[in-house]
Computed example of a mutant assay.
Amino acid sequence: MSTTRTIITPRGQRPVARGRKSFDPVSQGTLPFLIPALIATVALVLLPVLYTIWLSLTDQDIAGNNNGFVGFENFATMFQNPEFWNSLFVTLQLFIVCLVVETLLGLALGYLLSRDVPGRAVFQGLMLIPAITASVAVALVWMLIYDPTLGAANQLLQAVGLDPVVWLGSREMAPWSIAIVDIWQWTPFMALIISAGIRSLPSEPFEAASIDGAGPVKKALFVGLPLLRSVLLVAMLLRTVDLIRFFDTIYIMTQGGPVNATNTLNVYGYRAAFIDQEPSYAAALQLSLFVLVILIAAIFTFVRKRSTDVE
């Protein structure tokens, strides 16, 4: 076990701690092992981003013919296009609704999973099935559930005396139908993270609150939630990155319709590139999505850092 020696220095100078050295990959001889990871990062992350930036500043068609540098013309066209603002609104709408509902349901379900009951491990394994199922398969199954005539959703509504609903063919219902699918698929993922966080909480603050006369509700709100703040922020950050990039389920189920009701930024960018055959404009759209992801992730990271500093 290493010890720390303090060197006595003349008055006015700060003592220097010896014994604990900072990690230096060059001096430790680990730099050659980091080179493959650095090369992969540059090849898979940095180069595509730089190419997208260059593509957004040019006028290129789907065949690869480049008509030259156009500056920020694609971005100006994007900001003047009402379809862009609609896709941004749909993206944020689905993001907020799904994140809030999944966090609240995940918190409730995570509390139940944190209890020591028989068969908990088996139930946790079964809960992961929606999250590990391919999104294409999930979308196809839910399209059958939402079928207007034979789907289980309308049959259930009719069984309780309600009128059938056009789930995916209505501009009003389509976004909520997509949100239900995502909530069903990813709430168990949130619950498992939160349940692990609850089981790792120290028992002393709860015992002290019980001695002070706090009931279960007060202990949960004023003791449990503050201690669980970092875990909640990490779980929400993981879901945030996926929700902002929401694409596969939407494109399989509605392709952004009806009447652009589910046309998120990702779906809009795909359609601009491969259907409208405007790759440069699509690159500008994807860069706006990239900036949106970074901005929201930075907000969550800042809040988490502040909460950690307070603790």
Rank of each mutant, 00 (worst) to 15 (best):
Ser56Asn: 02
Val70Lys: 02
Glu172Lys: 10
Val166His: 15
Gly19Leu: 06
Glu73Asn: 06
Val136Asp: 01
Leu99Pro: 07
Tyr146Val: 05
Leu88Asn: 02
Thr52Cys: 13
Thr103Asn: 12
Asp212His: 08
Asn260Phe: 07
Arg115Asn: 07
Ile275Thr: 14
Ser203Leu: 11
Ile193Asn: 08
Phe206Trp: 02
Leu88Gln: 00
Phe222Ala: 13
Leu31Ser: 06
Leu112Tyr: 09
Phe95Pro: 03
Gly224Ser: 11
Ala153Trp: 05
Gln185Glu: 13
Leu88Thr: 04
Ala209Thr: 03
Pro258Ala: 05
Ser135Gln: 13
Lys218Ile: 06
Leu227Pro: 08
Ile7Asn: 08
Ser22Val: 14
Met143Arg: 07
Thr4Lys: 13
Val26Asn: 11
Val97His: 02
Phe84Ser: 03
Tyr111Pro: 03
Lys219His: 07
Gln28Leu: 02
Pro82Trp: 01
Gln93Gly: 14
Ala63Asn: 10
Ile211Thr: 12
Ala137Trp: 02
Glu83Met: 12
Ile194Asp: 03
Leu104Ala: 14
Arg271Lys: 15
Thr187Arg: 05
Ala139Ser: 06
Ala108Asn: 12
Thr308Ala: 15
Pro279Leu: 11
Ala282Phe: 09
Asp242Gly: 12
Leu225Tyr: 13
Leu150Val: 10
Leu232Glu: 03
Thr262Cys: 08
Gln13Phe: 15
Met236Tyr: 00
Asp242Leu: 10
Trp186Ala: 03
Glu102Gln: 15
Glu73His: 06
Ala108Asp: 01
Ile129Phe: 08
Leu144Arg: 13
Leu238Phe: 13
Asp182Tyr: 13
Tyr146Glu: 09
Ser280Gln: 02
Ser2Arg: 12
Phe95Met: 05
Arg18Phe: 09
Pro226Thr: 00
Ala17Leu: 15
Leu47Lys: 12
Ser210Phe: 03
Pro226Met: 01
Arg245Cys: 07
Ile244Gly: 11
Pro258Tyr: 13
Ser87His: 05
Ser22Glu: 09
Thr308Phe: 07
Phe222Trp: 12
Val90Ala: 00
Leu168Ile: 11
Ala220Thr: 15
Val16Gly: 00
Gln286Cys: 07
Val117Lys: 10
Arg120Trp: 00
Thr240Ala: 12
Gly106Gln: 07
Leu105Ile: 10
Asn86Met: 06
Ala235Cys: 03
Gly29Met: 09
Asn66Cys: 01
